[in-house]
């Protein structure tokens, strides 16, 4: 019965256009409008019900004070002013900024790997297939896996000790900075394959000759890369950046959950985990919603350019 949402629109739409293909112009126009409305309806309902309505309810809750599971009352902007005095909230957004600062790495690393694969080194198809594997593993699974891998006597440190880099074999999840850095690295591990695939898709659209000219000549390889290949890849880079900018904080959530729970102290506390903690563990729904709304604003600001880009991409006519 659920699946019916989409097909519901269909039959009505289906017979509409078939009958009168010969136009009296005006009514056709109106009919096309109604058809359009019918076509966007399922998507609109979905977006409203499962995104916009909850967001609005979140905004309403953020102006309420609720104590435990008792009733709630209007509290004005209390929850918002409280955030500015709460060191945990401030730290969480500071950490979020640090994570966002790693975005260039997210954008460049897959690009470089995609370019390497695109050189058609022996076995390139194999690498292409293998790089995508981490992405297919569920984040929660990744988190549990890396709990073993990053442990003080785990494989990472065993390797470092083995190659004589003993001093680098640290307690990865214990340090103020190394903990957050490790989380980001694990997230990057699990998503870089998607990036590589995306870039390869973009590279496939660039004419072979252009690329070959750029590659063959050993000297000035990087300069050509920068001046010839990257500009042609712009739409792909933009798309991948959109995905990363809007996703990176969300991708970290299950990892925080499985690996650090925001600790040690508040070293890996991010806003989305704080929302969860405040709402579900501290039973402070009003305050939790306020932090959630602040997070929404943060992400929205971050992706405002991406959305603008997406909008123009989707609506611009090809030249």
């Amino acid at each position: 019965m659920t699946i019916s949402t989409a097909p519901v629109a269909e039959p009505a739409a289906a017979d509409a256009p078939t009958a009168p293909a010969r136009p009296p112009r005006r009514p056709a126009h109106a009919r096309e409008w109604w058809l359009g409305a019918a076509l966007v309806l399922p998507a609109l309902v979905l977006a409203l019900l499962f995104k916009v309505v909850p967001l609005v309810r979140g905004v309403i809750t953020s102006f309420e004070s609720s104590s435990g599971f008792g009733g709630s009352e209007f509290a004005g902007a209390d929850n918002y002013t409280r955030m500015f005095d709460d060191p945990m909230v401030l730290t969480s957004f500071r950490n979020a900024l640090l994570v966002v600062a790693t975005l260039p790495v997210w954008i460049v690393v897959p690009l470089v790997l995609a370019l390497l694969i695109h050189q058609r080194a022996p076995g390139w198809k194999f690498f292409r297939a293998v790089y995508f594997v981490p992405y297919t593993i569920a984040p929660i699974v990744v988190g549990i896996m890396f709990r073993q891998i990053l442990s003080p006597d785990g494989p990472v440190n065993a390797l470092l000790r083995g190659v004589g880099l003993e001093p680098l074999a640290i307690e990865w999840l214990n340090g103020r900075n190394s903990a957050l850095f490790s989380l980001v690295a694990v997230a990057l591990w699990s998503f870089f394959g998607l990036g590589v695939m995306t870039y390869l898709a973009g590279l496939a659209t660039i004419p072979e000759e252009t690329l070959e000219a750029a590659y063959l000549d050993g000297a000035g390889f990087f300069r050509r890369l920068w001046s010839v290949v990257v500009p042609m890849l712009r739409p792909t880079v933009a798309y991948w950046s959109v995905l990363c900018a809007s996703g990176v904080l969300i991708w970290l959530f299950p990892l925080i959950y499985a690996l650090t729970q925001g600790g040690p102290g508040d070293a890996t506390m991010l806003p989305e985990y704080l929302v969860f903690l405040t709402t579900f563990q501290f039973l402070d729904r009003g305050y939790g919603s306020a932090i959630g709304i602040a997070l929404f604003v943060f992400v929205a600001l971050l992706s405002i350019f991406s959305v603008r880009h997406m909008f123009t991409e989707g609506t611009r006519k090809p030249r």
Binding site: R147, S151, E171, L173, G263, P264
Partner: peptide, 8 residues
């Protein structure tokens, strides 16, 4: 154990 602060 040294990693006490970061494990459950």
């Amino acid at each position: 154990n040294k990693n006490a602060p970061s494990i459950t």
